[in-house]
Design a binder for these strands. Structure first.
Lengths: 126, 126
DNA sequence: TGTCTATGTTGACACATGTCGAACCAGAGA
DNA sequence: TCTCTGGTTCGACATGTGTCAACATAGACA
């Protein structure tokens, strides 16, 4: 599975110079296209198991973790793999095989962009 | 429909003093309970139609809008109503009837808390 | 080479979700 | 009171999603 088809959700540098997928939620009504793109990210985090997996990876040292470290979320391993794939398809994680183990890593720029999307860059109070 | 059953997702003031539902995603692995709570919010925003509705309300003057202003999202009015109800149940919106029209309003503190959750507690611009 | 362990994939199933039309409810105004 | 308009709820349906068991694959090691 290639990581090449990560969605162009955000600017890779997180600088805000390259246009992210969407303006802050409070800035203007989303177009259908913007909503489709952003909803994909939110939907990926809209499952408790995926949220735990994502949080486990994000909070692990170096922002990466092998599957063996995070697969204790109460579901079978195929299910864990399934959810990790979903997170990867949403552009929130990337994976890399190193020997026996597969390591998953967060995309910090995506996290930052989603935070910006929600907090409007300002203090979220409009 | 009462707004009384809004979930205790975040501290109502957005000050961070009252404990929000969850730590930043990057701080520690979510517990099953934290994940369940936070996933409800993300899932609510994980649908394009809901995201457009929410963005339309959030970007409207005063942070509130009547249904008639935002129901042009390409689906029938019952469906719009259905999604607005979902957003309300997730604690992202509140509603109030004023005469003929029903007005929906965003919960700024919820937005801020979600931004904080994603950006690790810092100012979301990383 | 063969075997073992760690992951990913496939197929199938039950359940949740998005959508609509029709019916219903709440105010406004005549 | 009746009627009109804005909005919600109900019932039904098609689709999407989460889950697992079983199978397949990749690398390590003997």
């Amino acid at each position: 599975m290639s990581n090449a088809k990560v969605l162009p959700l955000v600017d890779p540098e997180g600088t805000g110079t390259a246009a992210p997928c969407c303006p802050p939620l409070t800035e203007r009504p989303f177009t259908a296209d913007e909503a489709e793109t952003a909803a994909r990210m939110f939907k990926a985090l809209g499952d408790p198991v995926r949220l735990r997996l994502f949080s486990a990876v994000a909070s692990h040292e170096g922002g990466e973790a092998c599957v063996c470290d995070i697969s204790d979320v109460g579901v079978s391993q195929p299910t864990v793999s399934h959810h990790l794939k979903k997170l990867k398809e949403a552009g929130l994680l990337t994976s890399e095989r190193r020997g026996t183990w597969v390591y998953y890593r967060v995309e910090p720029s995506v996290l930052a962009a989603m935070g910006r999307l929600l907090s409007g860059g300002r203090s979220a109070g409009q």
